[in-house]
Nucleic acid binder design. Sequence first.
DNA 1: TTATGTGGGACTATTTTAGTCCTATTTGAA
DNA 2: TTCAAATAGGACTAAAATAGTCCCACATAA
Lengths: 151, 151
Amino acid sequence: MLRMGKITDYATVVLASLAQEPALTLAAAELAVRTRLSRPTVSKVLKGLQRAGMVISSRGAQGGYRLARSPEQITAAQILDVFEGPIAITECSGASSQCGIERQCRVGGAWQRVNAAIRRALEEVTLRQLAGLDSATLRVADLASEIRIDT
Amino acid sequence: MLRMGKITDYATVVLASLAQEPALTLAAAELAVRTRLSRPTVSKVLKGLQRAGMVISSRGAQGGYRLARSPEQITAAQILDVFEGPIAITECSGASSQCGIERQCRVGGAWQRVNAAIRRALEEVTLRQLAGLDSATLRVADLASEIRIDT
DNA sequence: TTATGTGGGACTATTTTAGTCCTATTTGAA
DNA sequence: TTCAAATAGGACTAAAATAGTCCCACATAA
């Protein structure tokens, strides 16, 4: 329905892995093993995360990565932002909307609100939760309804 | 941040246009004029919508399209489904998740819940609202709490 | 019977995305 | 001082998704 790229997905996995051991500095190679992802991919992900300030890197021997903040302070929204950018659900709902039909369609406004709502929800979800470190697990009503068949 | 294709965007615009005149049967060409989109594109969109049962078509002269149900009964989630498919926010959160690392990452579950929450929010938004036909506008605050993830 | 429509694809060009690899730079430790 | 272990930053290619157009068969009102 809505999609995020695989890299963002990987990023979550890698971050979750780092969240298991917030104290340690782990090398990309080690993280690749732990996450079962390929090394180049893990590297790419970590570079992005470091540029975004989500992880702190140490270069040279014994170097590696660690979380820049605690898992409670990293949100799903932040993770999305790193690789997906601030691009909105629809182009109209983005910052610089100039689709030309704007005046006519009037649709933009509503999508913007939807988008804002989704974003706020995503800001409520922490890495701690994503990593399953929360004993009180996420409580969201039972599963998404499948394709609806209203008449 | 999260993205949906342009076609889905167009679909919303076209549906909103149809929602202005639920009684009329409008030809693709006419809708192209009203929405300021190109004819082929509008046509493509409408074909998809008709296959999905969102609009009803009449062939031949004086033919065209009209909404299959009232604007209140068409939701943003349904519109998304037509062209974006049921694909989830991350592949792990899709129906057939077999990413291989699933056992390790444990992340999938949380994303699934996030995804479900987003979907539910999208089901609350009607075409009527998207089209701006509702005098009482969307109340974002409510929407956000709808999709909040309790810890 | 002809104008006007939709139905269903086929098709191409463009853009995104995924994933790998190469080279420079940094740094701890023998 | 030197070397090995790591990250930084791109460059690059292949594959996949998207956008958008076009063509032709079929349907139907006048």
